[in-house]
Amino acid sequence: MLSFIARRLGLAALVALTVSALSFGLLFLSGDPASAIAGEGANDADIAAIRSFYGFDRPVIVQYGDWLWSALHGDFGQSYYFQLPVSSLIADRLSVTMTLGVCGIVFALAVAIPLGVAAAVRPNSIVDRLALFLSVVGQAMPSFWFGLLLIVLFAVKLGWLPPSGTQSWTNFVMPTVVLGYYAMPAIMRLTRAGMLEVLGADYIRTARAKGAGEWRVLFKHALRNAVIPVVSLAAVQMGFMLGGSIVVESVFALHGAGFLAWESIGRNDLPTVQALILIFSMFYIVFTFLADILNAWLDPRMRTG
């Protein structure tokens, strides 16, 4: 197990280094960053002064090394637009996105896995067709449209929930449903397919022949093996929720890190965009690494694969 963890950790470190290089390369993707900072009316002297002030006149590899070393110490530079340290700017917003992402994935797993199991146990039944219907609707309906529907119904018509803000836990109910509902279809279908495959295995028939109860067969023997690919998918979905929550945060006026990314892109705030891409990518890497470890614990065959 330790050798498996070491291999996965080394791979994660290589991926993180590659992502950091790509994140830094965004600074030069749109051309000369000094010209972008100076604006349209700047003259050559102003651009040269900005290039010297920010160190853009140094070799690129030196700039990358300094940026990476500072990033490892939590220093992502100064925001061009907000004129604040990028690290403190992201720290103020990240808690909202983290809360929304964790609540979203918990909601998706809590609904999708039981529905997937029920659909596999009763194929072609009403439950199976309901799960299929929810899956199709979840992928077909845009998240912003679903969010607006919930606001009109539960905030405007019924007045049960606040339409925006982050004052209390009630502000996160509708955004959680919207974000989690988008991840439900894939998790539900994968759970159903895995359970259908596992329920036909020999060891399931053996467990039933020995007199094991149906709940024990389903949740101890079958689900443990069927859930392995679901763990990997949930890790990817969790990373997506953190990095792709821009639309949901915009609809519900949740000023989290996703909304900050949208603001920074529109205002050409390159240091903030760089830092957010790097941080969101690190979330993907960490969640995938943890999913690999959990899968190896669930299925010992993966440790020697």
Rank of each mutant, 00 (worst) to 15 (best):
D66K: 14
Y64R: 07
T97A: 13
G74L: 00
W67D: 11
Q78F: 10
Y80I: 00
A71N: 08
I90E: 03
W69P: 09
A91M: 11
P59S: 01
T97P: 15
Y80D: 00
D75V: 06
Y64W: 09
D57Y: 12
Y81R: 11
L89H: 01
S70G: 01
S87M: 13
T99K: 05
V96E: 03
T97L: 14
V86I: 08
T97K: 07
G65Q: 06
W67S: 00
M98G: 14
G65L: 14
W67V: 01
G65I: 06
L72C: 10
L84K: 04
L68C: 08
V60C: 08
M98W: 14
P59N: 10
R93A: 04
R93Y: 12
S95A: 11
P85A: 02
T99P: 06
T99I: 00
F82G: 03
P85H: 09
S87G: 11
G74C: 01
M98A: 15
S87Y: 07
H73C: 12
S95E: 10
R58Y: 02
Q63A: 04
L94C: 05
S70C: 10
S87P: 13
Y64F: 12
L72E: 04
M98I: 11
S95C: 02
S95M: 10
D57I: 03
S79P: 09
